[in-house]
């Protein structure tokens, strides 16, 4: 199935070179979870991040569906 992935800030390095701010399409196996997507992208397992699917914050075990838009961004806490 095809999903759209948008990577932000330091996580951009784990996707293809796209225009800044644009997402990319990615084929993943049916039933793929966010966790498995991260593995497919080569994001280290311990990388701190927040995952949103179709504008809802999800746990990494969340199962993806065809056409989902996945946003991955790092937690930011500095002041």
């Amino acid at each position: 199935m095809l999903i759209t992935v948008k990577l932000y800030a330091g996580l951009r390095q784990f996707g293809p070179q796209t225009q800044a701010g644009e997402g990319f399409q990615r084929a993943v196996p049916d039933g793929c979870s966010v966790d498995q997507l991260l593995e497919l992208l080569g994001v280290p397992g311990n990388a701190p991040l927040v995952a949103m699917v179709n504008q809802t914050v999800v746990f990494l075990q969340h199962e993806l569906a065809e056409g989902d838009v996945v946003c991955l961004f790092p937690p930011v806490a500095g002041g």
Binding site: Y8, A9, P74, V76, A77, G78
Partner: peptide, 10 residues
């Protein structure tokens, strides 16, 4: 709310 890190701000 706001938070910053490197070149990133929210």
């Amino acid at each position: 709310h706001a938070a910053i890190a490197g070149y990133v701000g929210q």
